[in-house]
């Protein structure tokens, strides 16, 4: 997972700044930027809008790493698609009480499990996923869909997401 320091470093390089030039823009020392990028310290909250503006992103994108313009699901063109066997299905469960579960299953294994008649609740142990057709997810991936394919919020506040990358 990309840390905020690594994200600042990447965005800085993408924006064509050196640590010195970015420090000049923000009116701080290059050492402060170095500490952010090494995840030793974090930027002061009052600096976030100026930092985001300098890096050409929103503060939300700077903090979360998610681009607002980036769609949750995208269709990969046929010539750029990876082999389905190289892809990974990720089931993310964020429970209401703060517990987090991440299950990563290679798509090749998903296909085998599907042929064996397995369903998603058997994998994720969440009844809110009952009724979601694993076969349809595989078909979507075969059609080039990647990203956050399913997002379910149960009545007790648990959030379950299924995404493919």
């Amino acid at each position: 997972m990309e840390t905020i320091g690594k994200r600042i470093s990447r965005l800085r390089r993408e924006a064509g700044y050196t640590q010195d030039t970015l420090a000049d823009v923000l009116g701080i020392t290059p050492q402060a930027i170095s500490k952010w990028e090494c995840d030793i310290t974090c930027p002061d909250i009052s600096l976030l809008p100026a930092l985001a503006k300098a890096l050409g992103v929103t503060t939300d994108e700077l903090l979360s790493g998610k681009s607002e313009s980036e769609p949750a699901v995208k269709i990969v063109p046929k010539d750029e698609r990876r082999d389905i066997g190289d892809m990974m299905l990720k089931i993310v469960v964020d429970s209401n009480d703060g517990d987090k579960v991440r299950v990563n299953i290679p798509m090749a294994l998903v296909q085998v499990a599907l042929e064996m008649g397995m369903e998603l609740p058997q994998v994720s142990n969440k009844d809110c996923l009952r009724g979601i057709d694993l076969g349809e997810i595989v078909n979507l991936v075969k059609a080039g869909a990647v990203g956050n394919l399913v997002e379910v919020e149960s009545s007790d506040g648990d959030v379950v997401r299924i995404f493919v990358e």
């Binding site: 990974m88 299953i105 290679p106 294994l109």
Partner: peptide, 18 residues
């Protein structure tokens, strides 16, 4: 077994409690 080879460093499950 095949997936182990095609996905080196495969993290099957990660559970973090609150």
């Amino acid at each position: 077994k095949k997936c182990k080879k095609t996905h080196p460093g495969w993290r099957l499950v990660e559970v973090s409690e609150h």
